[in-house]
Design a protein around this nucleic acid. Structure first.
Length: 492
RNA sequence: GGCGGCAUAGCCAAGUGGCUAAGGCAGCGGUCUGCAAAACCGUUAUUCACCGGUUCGAAUCCGGUUGCCGCCUCCA
Protein backbone atom coordinates (compact mmCIF):
# COMPACT_ATOMS: atom_id res chain seq x y z
CA UNK A 1 0.00 0.00 0.00
CA UNK A 2 1.26 3.43 -0.90
CA UNK A 3 0.17 6.96 -0.38
CA UNK A 4 -3.37 7.89 -1.22
CA UNK A 5 -5.31 11.06 -0.57
CA UNK A 6 -8.48 12.96 -1.32
CA UNK A 7 -8.37 14.76 -4.65
CA UNK A 8 -10.73 17.71 -5.01
CA UNK A 9 -11.01 17.18 -8.76
CA UNK A 10 -12.22 13.57 -8.59
CA UNK A 11 -13.86 14.10 -5.17
CA UNK A 12 -12.53 10.90 -3.67
CA UNK A 13 -9.44 9.18 -2.35
CA UNK A 14 -7.03 8.18 -5.05
CA UNK A 15 -3.61 6.54 -5.14
CA UNK A 16 -0.88 9.04 -5.66
CA UNK A 17 1.26 8.27 -8.68
CA UNK A 18 3.71 11.05 -9.51
CA UNK A 19 4.47 12.13 -13.05
CA UNK A 20 8.12 11.20 -12.59
CA UNK A 21 8.95 8.31 -10.29
CA UNK A 22 10.07 9.40 -6.82
CA UNK A 23 9.65 13.08 -7.61
CA UNK A 24 6.86 15.47 -6.72
CA UNK A 25 6.15 18.95 -7.99
CA UNK A 26 3.72 20.83 -5.76
CA UNK A 27 2.37 24.35 -6.01
CA UNK A 28 0.49 26.07 -3.21
CA UNK A 29 -1.13 29.49 -3.37
CA UNK A 30 0.58 31.77 -0.92
CA UNK A 31 -0.53 34.98 0.69
CA UNK A 32 -1.40 38.34 -0.73
CA UNK A 33 1.12 40.51 1.08
CA UNK A 34 -1.02 43.33 2.44
CA UNK A 35 -1.55 42.44 6.11
CA UNK A 36 -0.30 40.43 9.08
CA UNK A 37 -0.80 36.65 8.93
CA UNK A 38 -3.65 35.16 10.95
CA UNK A 39 -4.07 31.66 12.31
CA UNK A 40 -5.89 30.60 9.15
CA UNK A 41 -2.75 31.28 7.15
CA UNK A 42 -0.93 29.27 9.78
CA UNK A 43 -3.20 26.29 9.22
CA UNK A 44 -2.64 26.26 5.49
CA UNK A 45 1.10 26.69 5.95
CA UNK A 46 1.32 23.94 8.58
CA UNK A 47 -0.81 21.54 6.55
CA UNK A 48 1.27 21.87 3.41
CA UNK A 49 4.46 21.89 5.43
CA UNK A 50 3.38 18.57 6.95
CA UNK A 51 2.45 17.23 3.52
CA UNK A 52 5.78 18.13 1.93
CA UNK A 53 7.68 16.82 4.96
CA UNK A 54 5.80 13.57 4.74
CA UNK A 55 6.42 13.25 1.01
CA UNK A 56 10.13 13.66 1.72
CA UNK A 57 9.94 11.15 4.57
CA UNK A 58 8.42 8.69 2.10
CA UNK A 59 11.39 9.14 -0.19
CA UNK A 60 10.08 11.63 -2.73
CA UNK A 61 12.25 14.40 -4.01
CA UNK A 62 9.95 17.39 -3.50
CA UNK A 63 9.90 20.59 -5.47
CA UNK A 64 7.60 22.85 -3.47
CA UNK A 65 6.65 26.21 -4.99
CA UNK A 66 4.63 28.76 -3.04
CA UNK A 67 4.04 32.22 -4.44
CA UNK A 68 3.61 35.68 -3.00
CA UNK A 69 1.00 37.93 -4.55
CA UNK A 70 2.68 41.33 -4.43
CA UNK A 71 0.43 43.34 -6.73
CA UNK A 72 -3.27 43.50 -5.99
CA UNK A 73 -6.10 45.93 -5.16
CA UNK A 74 -5.70 45.51 -1.44
CA UNK A 75 -1.97 46.17 -1.60
CA UNK A 76 -2.59 49.27 -3.71
CA UNK A 77 -5.22 50.50 -1.25
CA UNK A 78 -2.89 50.10 1.65
CA UNK A 79 -0.02 51.78 -0.15
CA UNK A 80 -2.27 54.73 -0.98
CA UNK A 81 -3.50 54.98 2.59
CA UNK A 82 0.06 55.02 3.90
CA UNK A 83 1.35 57.27 1.15
CA UNK A 84 3.88 54.76 -0.08
CA UNK A 85 4.24 52.28 -2.94
CA UNK A 86 3.14 48.67 -3.27
CA UNK A 87 6.70 47.44 -3.17
CA UNK A 88 7.23 48.73 0.34
CA UNK A 89 3.95 47.24 1.54
CA UNK A 90 4.54 43.81 0.03
CA UNK A 91 8.15 43.71 1.22
CA UNK A 92 7.04 44.48 4.75
CA UNK A 93 4.39 41.79 4.87
CA UNK A 94 6.50 39.19 3.12
CA UNK A 95 9.22 39.78 5.69
CA UNK A 96 6.66 39.50 8.52
CA UNK A 97 5.23 36.37 6.96
CA UNK A 98 8.64 34.75 6.75
CA UNK A 99 9.45 35.62 10.36
CA UNK A 100 6.14 34.21 11.55
CA UNK A 101 6.47 31.02 9.53
CA UNK A 102 10.04 30.47 10.71
CA UNK A 103 8.86 30.79 14.26
CA UNK A 104 6.02 28.34 13.57
CA UNK A 105 8.58 25.84 12.35
CA UNK A 106 7.31 25.92 8.77
CA UNK A 107 10.14 24.98 6.42
CA UNK A 108 10.73 27.39 3.57
CA UNK A 109 9.41 26.12 0.23
CA UNK A 110 11.92 25.26 -2.50
CA UNK A 111 10.91 28.40 -4.39
CA UNK A 112 8.86 31.48 -3.50
CA UNK A 113 8.28 33.44 -6.70
CA UNK A 114 6.52 36.79 -6.70
CA UNK A 115 3.92 37.94 -9.14
CA UNK A 116 5.79 41.10 -10.10
CA UNK A 117 8.80 39.00 -11.17
CA UNK A 118 6.64 37.17 -13.69
CA UNK A 119 4.76 39.89 -15.54
CA UNK A 120 6.29 39.07 -18.93
CA UNK A 121 5.23 35.43 -18.60
CA UNK A 122 1.70 36.55 -17.80
CA UNK A 123 1.61 38.83 -20.83
CA UNK A 124 2.76 35.95 -23.05
CA UNK A 125 0.13 33.65 -21.64
CA UNK A 126 -2.66 36.19 -22.01
CA UNK A 127 -1.53 36.82 -25.57
CA UNK A 128 -1.79 33.13 -26.30
CA UNK A 129 -5.28 32.96 -24.80
CA UNK A 130 -6.35 35.83 -27.06
CA UNK A 131 -4.82 34.08 -30.08
CA UNK A 132 -6.69 30.92 -29.23
CA UNK A 133 -9.94 32.84 -29.01
CA UNK A 134 -10.41 32.18 -25.29
CA UNK A 135 -9.89 35.79 -24.26
CA UNK A 136 -10.99 39.17 -25.54
CA UNK A 137 -9.83 42.76 -25.16
CA UNK A 138 -12.12 45.63 -24.18
CA UNK A 139 -10.67 49.13 -23.64
CA UNK A 140 -7.34 47.98 -22.28
CA UNK A 141 -8.82 45.18 -20.14
CA UNK A 142 -8.54 41.54 -21.11
CA UNK A 143 -11.15 38.98 -20.06
CA UNK A 144 -11.24 35.22 -20.15
CA UNK A 145 -14.37 33.84 -21.78
CA UNK A 146 -15.60 30.99 -19.60
CA UNK A 147 -18.13 29.81 -22.18
CA UNK A 148 -15.35 29.05 -24.65
CA UNK A 149 -13.55 26.72 -22.26
CA UNK A 150 -15.57 23.50 -22.20
CA UNK A 151 -14.32 22.15 -18.88
CA UNK A 152 -15.27 25.23 -16.91
CA UNK A 153 -16.65 24.20 -13.52
CA UNK A 154 -15.09 20.75 -13.30
CA UNK A 155 -13.10 21.43 -10.14
CA UNK A 156 -15.77 23.25 -8.16
CA UNK A 157 -18.59 21.06 -9.47
CA UNK A 158 -20.78 23.79 -10.86
CA UNK A 159 -21.93 24.87 -14.24
CA UNK A 160 -22.14 28.30 -15.74
CA UNK A 161 -25.94 28.40 -15.99
CA UNK A 162 -26.45 27.51 -12.32
CA UNK A 163 -24.04 30.17 -11.28
CA UNK A 164 -25.71 32.72 -13.49
CA UNK A 165 -29.05 31.91 -11.91
CA UNK A 166 -27.80 32.56 -8.40
CA UNK A 167 -25.35 35.31 -9.21
CA UNK A 168 -25.45 38.28 -6.89
CA UNK A 169 -22.57 40.05 -8.48
CA UNK A 170 -22.31 43.42 -10.09
CA UNK A 171 -22.03 42.76 -13.74
CA UNK A 172 -19.20 44.60 -15.40
CA UNK A 173 -20.60 46.12 -18.58
CA UNK A 174 -17.47 45.17 -20.45
CA UNK A 175 -17.92 41.44 -19.86
CA UNK A 176 -19.57 39.28 -22.50
CA UNK A 177 -20.66 36.87 -19.79
CA UNK A 178 -20.97 37.82 -16.11
CA UNK A 179 -18.81 34.83 -15.18
CA UNK A 180 -15.90 35.98 -17.31
CA UNK A 181 -12.91 37.04 -15.26
CA UNK A 182 -10.17 39.57 -15.79
CA UNK A 183 -6.72 38.57 -17.04
CA UNK A 184 -5.32 42.06 -17.44
CA UNK A 185 -6.59 45.30 -15.94
CA UNK A 186 -5.87 48.62 -17.57
CA UNK A 187 -4.35 50.90 -14.95
CA UNK A 188 -6.14 53.89 -13.52
CA UNK A 189 -4.19 57.00 -12.57
CA UNK A 190 -2.04 56.47 -9.50
CA UNK A 191 -1.91 52.71 -9.91
CA UNK A 192 1.21 50.69 -10.66
CA UNK A 193 1.48 49.56 -14.27
CA UNK A 194 3.46 47.54 -16.76
CA UNK A 195 3.44 47.99 -20.53
CA UNK A 196 1.54 45.43 -22.50
CA UNK A 197 0.12 44.98 -26.01
CA UNK A 198 -3.19 46.21 -24.56
CA UNK A 199 -1.79 49.29 -22.92
CA UNK A 200 -0.47 50.00 -19.46
CA UNK A 201 -1.95 47.81 -16.80
CA UNK A 202 -1.49 45.00 -14.33
CA UNK A 203 -2.33 41.31 -14.22
CA UNK A 204 -5.46 39.80 -12.71
CA UNK A 205 -5.00 37.51 -9.74
CA UNK A 206 -5.69 34.15 -11.34
CA UNK A 207 -3.20 34.43 -14.19
CA UNK A 208 -0.33 34.79 -11.72
CA UNK A 209 -0.66 31.32 -10.33
CA UNK A 210 -1.06 29.68 -13.73
CA UNK A 211 2.15 31.31 -14.90
CA UNK A 212 4.24 30.78 -11.78
CA UNK A 213 3.24 27.17 -11.24
CA UNK A 214 3.89 26.17 -14.84
CA UNK A 215 7.10 28.15 -15.13
CA UNK A 216 8.71 26.25 -12.27
CA UNK A 217 6.95 22.91 -12.39
CA UNK A 218 6.02 22.41 -16.05
CA UNK A 219 2.76 22.65 -17.94
CA UNK A 220 1.51 19.52 -16.23
CA UNK A 221 2.60 18.93 -12.65
CA UNK A 222 1.65 16.75 -9.72
CA UNK A 223 -0.13 18.60 -6.93
CA UNK A 224 -1.79 21.97 -6.58
CA UNK A 225 -2.96 23.04 -3.15
CA UNK A 226 -4.46 25.87 -1.16
CA UNK A 227 -7.27 26.78 1.20
CA UNK A 228 -10.70 25.38 0.34
CA UNK A 229 -12.02 28.86 -0.38
CA UNK A 230 -9.72 29.05 -3.38
CA UNK A 231 -11.47 26.21 -5.20
CA UNK A 232 -13.86 28.70 -6.72
CA UNK A 233 -13.15 30.87 -8.51
CA UNK A 234 -9.36 30.97 -8.20
CA UNK A 235 -8.40 27.38 -8.93
CA UNK A 236 -11.23 26.85 -11.35
CA UNK A 237 -9.92 29.83 -13.31
CA UNK A 238 -6.35 28.60 -13.18
CA UNK A 239 -7.45 25.36 -14.81
CA UNK A 240 -9.34 27.24 -17.50
CA UNK A 241 -6.36 29.47 -18.29
CA UNK A 242 -3.69 26.80 -18.21
CA UNK A 243 -5.50 24.01 -19.98
CA UNK A 244 -7.00 26.51 -22.40
CA UNK A 245 -3.59 27.91 -23.29
CA UNK A 246 -1.60 24.69 -23.60
CA UNK A 247 -4.17 21.95 -24.24
CA UNK A 248 -2.54 19.81 -21.62
CA UNK A 249 -3.76 18.73 -18.21
CA UNK A 250 -2.79 21.24 -15.54
CA UNK A 251 -2.35 19.93 -11.94
CA UNK A 252 -2.95 16.19 -11.64
CA UNK A 253 -4.12 16.26 -8.02
CA UNK A 254 -5.78 19.01 -6.01
CA UNK A 255 -5.46 19.32 -2.25
CA UNK A 256 -7.41 21.80 -0.15
CA UNK A 257 -7.19 22.48 3.55
CA UNK A 258 -10.25 23.23 5.66
CA UNK A 259 -10.86 26.46 7.48
CA UNK A 260 -10.33 27.69 10.98
CA UNK A 261 -13.56 28.81 12.54
CA UNK A 262 -14.48 30.77 15.62
CA UNK A 263 -17.66 29.68 17.40
CA UNK A 264 -18.56 27.53 14.39
CA UNK A 265 -18.35 30.49 12.06
CA UNK A 266 -15.75 31.29 9.50
CA UNK A 267 -12.98 33.53 10.71
CA UNK A 268 -13.17 36.63 8.59
CA UNK A 269 -12.52 40.31 8.60
CA UNK A 270 -16.16 41.19 8.19
CA UNK A 271 -17.10 39.22 11.32
CA UNK A 272 -14.19 40.78 13.16
CA UNK A 273 -13.13 37.46 14.62
CA UNK A 274 -9.59 37.26 13.29
CA UNK A 275 -6.83 35.89 15.49
CA UNK A 276 -3.47 36.87 14.25
CA UNK A 277 -0.64 34.40 14.27
CA UNK A 278 1.83 36.50 16.23
CA UNK A 279 -0.57 36.98 19.10
CA UNK A 280 -1.34 33.27 19.14
CA UNK A 281 2.37 32.41 19.25
CA UNK A 282 2.86 34.81 22.13
CA UNK A 283 0.07 33.07 24.00
CA UNK A 284 1.17 29.50 23.24
CA UNK A 285 4.28 27.68 22.14
CA UNK A 286 4.35 27.39 18.33
CA UNK A 287 4.36 23.61 18.68
CA UNK A 288 1.09 23.84 20.62
CA UNK A 289 -0.40 25.66 17.67
CA UNK A 290 0.88 23.02 15.26
CA UNK A 291 -0.42 20.27 17.51
CA UNK A 292 -3.81 21.97 17.62
CA UNK A 293 -3.88 22.09 13.82
CA UNK A 294 -2.65 18.54 13.26
CA UNK A 295 -4.95 16.96 15.84
CA UNK A 296 -7.78 17.21 13.33
CA UNK A 297 -7.85 16.02 9.76
CA UNK A 298 -6.58 18.72 7.39
CA UNK A 299 -9.91 18.95 5.55
CA UNK A 300 -12.19 19.28 8.60
CA UNK A 301 -13.16 22.68 9.88
CA UNK A 302 -11.60 23.36 13.28
CA UNK A 303 -12.76 25.73 15.96
CA UNK A 304 -10.18 28.10 17.33
CA UNK A 305 -10.47 29.20 20.95
CA UNK A 306 -8.33 29.79 23.98
CA UNK A 307 -9.83 26.68 25.61
CA UNK A 308 -8.96 24.40 22.73
CA UNK A 309 -5.41 25.79 22.67
CA UNK A 310 -5.14 25.09 26.39
CA UNK A 311 -6.25 21.52 25.75
CA UNK A 312 -3.59 21.20 23.09
CA UNK A 313 -1.04 22.56 25.50
CA UNK A 314 -1.99 19.85 28.01
CA UNK A 315 -1.59 17.22 25.28
CA UNK A 316 1.83 18.50 24.30
CA UNK A 317 2.93 18.40 27.91
CA UNK A 318 2.24 14.71 28.01
CA UNK A 319 4.85 14.19 25.29
CA UNK A 320 7.39 16.51 26.78
CA UNK A 321 6.98 15.02 30.28
CA UNK A 322 7.96 11.66 28.87
CA UNK A 323 10.82 13.12 26.83
CA UNK A 324 12.00 14.85 30.00
CA UNK A 325 11.86 11.59 31.92
CA UNK A 326 13.92 9.87 29.24
CA UNK A 327 16.40 12.72 29.17
CA UNK A 328 16.93 12.43 32.92
CA UNK A 329 17.58 8.70 32.56
CA UNK A 330 20.14 9.26 29.81
CA UNK A 331 22.52 11.80 31.30
CA UNK A 332 25.41 10.62 29.16
CA UNK A 333 23.57 10.74 25.84
CA UNK A 334 22.55 7.73 23.80
CA UNK A 335 25.16 5.24 25.07
CA UNK A 336 25.89 1.70 23.94
CA UNK A 337 24.18 0.03 20.98
CA UNK A 338 22.53 -3.37 21.07
CA UNK A 339 20.74 -5.54 18.57
CA UNK A 340 17.26 -6.95 19.05
CA UNK A 341 18.74 -10.35 19.89
CA UNK A 342 20.59 -8.90 22.88
CA UNK A 343 17.33 -7.82 24.45
CA UNK A 344 14.78 -9.71 26.51
CA UNK A 345 11.59 -9.17 28.49
CA UNK A 346 10.28 -5.63 28.78
CA UNK A 347 13.34 -4.22 27.00
CA UNK A 348 12.68 -6.36 23.97
CA UNK A 349 8.97 -5.64 24.06
CA UNK A 350 9.42 -1.87 24.06
CA UNK A 351 12.09 -2.10 21.41
CA UNK A 352 9.74 -4.04 19.15
CA UNK A 353 6.94 -1.56 19.77
CA UNK A 354 9.32 1.20 18.73
CA UNK A 355 9.74 -0.49 15.38
CA UNK A 356 5.99 -1.06 15.07
CA UNK A 357 5.30 2.61 15.76
CA UNK A 358 6.74 3.67 12.42
CA UNK A 359 4.55 1.21 10.57
CA UNK A 360 1.43 2.50 12.28
CA UNK A 361 2.48 6.07 11.64
CA UNK A 362 3.03 5.45 7.93
CA UNK A 363 -0.23 3.57 7.66
CA UNK A 364 -2.10 6.55 9.10
CA UNK A 365 -0.25 9.14 7.05
CA UNK A 366 -0.50 7.17 3.82
CA UNK A 367 -4.26 7.33 4.23
CA UNK A 368 -4.95 10.94 3.29
CA UNK A 369 -2.39 12.40 5.68
CA UNK A 370 -4.31 11.28 8.74
CA UNK A 371 -2.30 13.20 11.31
CA UNK A 372 -4.95 12.69 14.00
CA UNK A 373 -4.52 8.92 13.80
CA UNK A 374 -0.74 9.29 13.58
CA UNK A 375 -0.76 11.34 16.78
CA UNK A 376 -2.97 8.72 18.38
CA UNK A 377 -0.28 6.09 17.73
CA UNK A 378 2.32 8.41 19.20
CA UNK A 379 0.23 8.89 22.35
CA UNK A 380 -0.18 5.14 22.74
CA UNK A 381 3.55 4.77 22.44
CA UNK A 382 4.05 7.40 25.14
CA UNK A 383 1.89 5.33 27.46
CA UNK A 384 3.95 2.23 26.67
CA UNK A 385 7.13 4.12 27.55
CA UNK A 386 5.66 5.50 30.77
CA UNK A 387 4.57 2.03 31.81
CA UNK A 388 8.01 0.69 31.04
CA UNK A 389 9.78 3.36 33.09
CA UNK A 390 7.27 3.20 35.97
CA UNK A 391 7.40 -0.59 36.31
CA UNK A 392 8.86 -1.79 39.61
CA UNK A 393 11.25 -4.06 37.76
CA UNK A 394 12.70 -1.19 35.71
CA UNK A 395 16.42 -0.59 36.10
CA UNK A 396 18.46 1.98 34.20
CA UNK A 397 20.80 -0.59 32.68
CA UNK A 398 22.83 -0.19 29.52
CA UNK A 399 20.14 -2.16 27.71
CA UNK A 400 17.18 -0.16 28.98
CA UNK A 401 19.03 3.05 28.21
CA UNK A 402 19.52 1.82 24.69
CA UNK A 403 15.82 1.00 24.40
CA UNK A 404 14.88 4.46 25.63
CA UNK A 405 17.31 6.25 23.37
CA UNK A 406 15.91 4.32 20.39
CA UNK A 407 12.39 5.25 21.45
CA UNK A 408 13.35 8.88 21.72
CA UNK A 409 15.03 8.86 18.32
CA UNK A 410 11.87 7.40 16.82
CA UNK A 411 9.62 9.99 18.45
CA UNK A 412 11.88 12.73 17.13
CA UNK A 413 12.07 11.21 13.66
CA UNK A 414 8.29 10.94 13.34
CA UNK A 415 7.78 14.21 15.19
CA UNK A 416 9.93 15.91 12.60
CA UNK A 417 7.40 15.01 9.92
CA UNK A 418 4.76 16.85 11.95
CA UNK A 419 7.13 19.57 13.11
CA UNK A 420 6.59 18.53 16.74
CA UNK A 421 8.70 17.40 19.73
CA UNK A 422 11.74 19.11 18.28
CA UNK A 423 12.92 21.16 21.23
CA UNK A 424 14.70 20.08 24.37
CA UNK A 425 12.13 19.27 27.10
CA UNK A 426 13.74 21.58 29.65
CA UNK A 427 13.73 24.36 27.12
CA UNK A 428 10.10 23.62 26.28
CA UNK A 429 8.93 23.77 29.88
CA UNK A 430 11.12 26.78 30.63
CA UNK A 431 9.67 28.72 27.72
CA UNK A 432 6.15 27.64 28.63
CA UNK A 433 6.61 28.76 32.23
CA UNK A 434 7.97 32.15 31.25
CA UNK A 435 5.22 32.70 28.71
CA UNK A 436 2.43 31.73 31.09
CA UNK A 437 3.90 33.79 33.92
CA UNK A 438 4.15 36.80 31.62
CA UNK A 439 0.54 36.31 30.48
CA UNK A 440 -0.60 36.59 34.09
CA UNK A 441 1.81 39.35 35.02
CA UNK A 442 3.57 37.15 37.59
CA UNK A 443 7.02 37.90 38.89
CA UNK A 444 9.25 34.85 38.45
CA UNK A 445 11.79 35.99 41.02
CA UNK A 446 9.09 36.49 43.65
CA UNK A 447 7.69 33.03 42.99
CA UNK A 448 11.09 31.43 43.32
CA UNK A 449 11.76 33.34 46.51
CA UNK A 450 8.55 32.00 48.01
CA UNK A 451 9.38 28.49 46.88
CA UNK A 452 12.77 28.74 48.59
CA UNK A 453 11.10 29.93 51.77
CA UNK A 454 8.61 27.07 51.59
CA UNK A 455 11.37 24.52 51.07
CA UNK A 456 13.05 25.79 54.20
CA UNK A 457 9.78 25.62 56.13
CA UNK A 458 9.25 22.07 54.91
CA UNK A 459 12.70 21.01 56.05
CA UNK A 460 11.84 22.35 59.47
CA UNK A 461 8.50 20.55 59.25
CA UNK A 462 6.70 23.87 59.57
CA UNK A 463 3.76 22.58 57.54
CA UNK A 464 1.57 25.52 58.36
CA UNK A 465 3.89 28.06 56.75
CA UNK A 466 4.70 25.72 53.88
CA UNK A 467 1.02 25.19 53.08
CA UNK A 468 0.30 28.87 53.44
CA UNK A 469 2.83 29.63 50.74
CA UNK A 470 1.56 26.80 48.59
CA UNK A 471 -2.03 28.05 48.86
CA UNK A 472 -0.94 31.55 48.04
CA UNK A 473 0.80 30.35 44.90
CA UNK A 474 -2.08 28.09 43.86
CA UNK A 475 -4.26 31.21 43.97
CA UNK A 476 -1.98 32.63 41.31
CA UNK A 477 -2.20 29.45 39.20
CA UNK A 478 1.32 28.42 40.18
CA UNK A 479 1.47 24.64 40.58
CA UNK A 480 4.29 23.23 42.65
CA UNK A 481 5.90 19.91 41.92
CA UNK A 482 7.68 18.47 44.94
CA UNK A 483 10.24 15.94 43.81
CA UNK A 484 13.24 14.19 45.32
CA UNK A 485 15.52 16.86 43.88
CA UNK A 486 13.54 19.80 45.20
CA UNK A 487 10.53 21.76 44.07
CA UNK A 488 9.86 22.92 40.54
CA UNK A 489 6.84 24.82 39.31
CA UNK A 490 4.62 25.50 36.37
CA UNK A 491 1.55 27.51 35.54
CA UNK A 492 -1.77 25.66 35.44
C1' G B 1 -32.19 30.34 -4.92
C1' G B 2 -28.00 26.87 -6.80
C1' C B 3 -23.86 23.57 -5.34
C1' G B 4 -21.32 21.04 -1.45
C1' G B 5 -19.85 19.41 3.52
C1' C B 6 -20.73 17.90 8.52
C1' A B 7 -23.64 15.46 12.86
C1' U B 8 -19.40 9.69 17.09
C1' A B 9 -18.86 10.07 25.25
C1' G B 10 -19.12 16.29 29.40
C1' C B 11 -15.64 18.63 25.48
C1' C B 12 -12.13 17.86 21.19
C1' A B 13 -11.43 13.92 17.69
C1' A B 14 -10.09 9.13 14.54
C1' G B 15 -12.79 5.30 12.42
C1' U B 16 -16.72 4.98 6.29
C1' G B 17 -19.42 -2.82 5.65
C1' G B 18 -17.54 -7.62 10.01
C1' C B 19 -11.31 -8.29 15.25
C1' U B 20 -13.04 -5.62 22.04
C1' A B 21 -16.01 2.06 18.41
C1' A B 22 -8.28 4.92 18.22
C1' G B 23 -6.32 8.95 20.83
C1' G B 24 -6.41 13.62 23.72
C1' C B 25 -8.73 17.00 27.42
C1' A B 26 -11.87 17.04 31.64
C1' G B 27 -13.99 13.62 35.62
C1' C B 28 -13.43 9.45 38.88
C1' G B 29 -10.27 5.41 41.50
C1' G B 30 -5.14 4.17 42.70
C1' U B 31 0.46 4.88 43.22
C1' C B 32 3.48 8.72 45.21
C1' U B 33 3.18 12.49 49.35
C1' G B 34 3.64 15.26 56.09
C1' C B 35 -1.27 16.36 53.79
C1' A B 36 -1.68 17.91 48.90
C1' A B 37 -0.43 19.17 44.05
C1' A B 38 2.14 17.75 39.82
C1' A B 39 3.47 13.32 37.36
C1' C B 40 2.36 8.30 36.33
C1' C B 41 -1.08 4.01 36.11
C1' G B 42 -6.15 2.41 35.66
C1' U B 43 -11.11 3.73 34.35
C1' U B 44 -15.24 6.37 31.61
C1' A B 45 -19.90 5.33 24.42
C1' U B 46 -24.05 -2.36 24.12
C1' U B 47 -23.51 2.70 20.98
C1' C B 48 -22.35 6.52 16.58
C1' A B 49 -28.60 13.30 15.29
C1' C B 50 -33.60 11.02 14.09
C1' C B 51 -36.88 7.66 10.95
C1' G B 52 -37.09 3.87 7.40
C1' G B 53 -34.50 0.50 3.85
C1' U B 54 -30.41 -2.81 1.69
C1' U B 55 -27.38 -6.87 3.92
C1' C B 56 -25.98 -12.97 7.27
C1' G B 57 -23.85 -8.32 9.27
C1' A B 58 -23.91 -0.79 9.10
C1' A B 59 -21.54 4.44 13.01
C1' U B 60 -20.00 3.05 8.05
C1' C B 61 -24.19 1.89 1.92
C1' C B 62 -29.33 3.92 0.08
C1' G B 63 -33.89 7.15 0.84
C1' G B 64 -36.18 10.73 3.95
C1' U B 65 -36.32 14.23 8.37
C1' U B 66 -33.94 17.70 11.65
C1' G B 67 -29.82 20.79 12.99
C1' C B 68 -25.12 23.24 11.94
C1' C B 69 -21.57 25.10 8.42
C1' G B 70 -19.07 26.45 3.77
C1' C B 71 -18.90 28.14 -1.43
C1' C B 72 -21.60 30.95 -5.28
C1' U B 73 -18.11 38.39 -3.86
C1' C B 74 -11.93 39.45 -1.70
C1' C B 75 -10.38 35.44 1.25
C1' A B 76 -5.72 30.22 3.72
Amino acid sequence: MGLRFHDTLTKGKTDFIPLVDRKVGIYVCGITAYDTCHVGHARSAVVFDMITRYLKYRGFQVNYVKNFTDVDDKIIDRANREGTDIHEISERYIREHNDDMDRLGVARPSLTPRATENIQGMIRMIDRLIEKGLAYVVDGDVFFSVERFPGYGKLSGRNIDEMMAGARIDVDEKKQNPMDFVLWKGSKPGEPWWDSPWGRGRPGWHIECSVMSQRYLGETFDIHGGGEDLIFPHHENEIAQSEGAWDKPFARYWLHNGFIRVNKEKMSKSLGNIFNLRDAMNQFHPEVLRFFILQSHYRSPIDFSDDSLRESRAGMERFYETLKRIKDLLPGGDGKEFSADDLAGADKDVYEKTQALSERFVEAMDDDFNTARALGSLFEFIRILNNYMTDKGFEPTERSRFVLSEARKRIRELGKVLGLFLVDPDEYFGADRDREAAKRGLDTAEIEGLIAERSLARREKNWKRADEIRDFLVEKAVLLKDGPEGTTWKIA
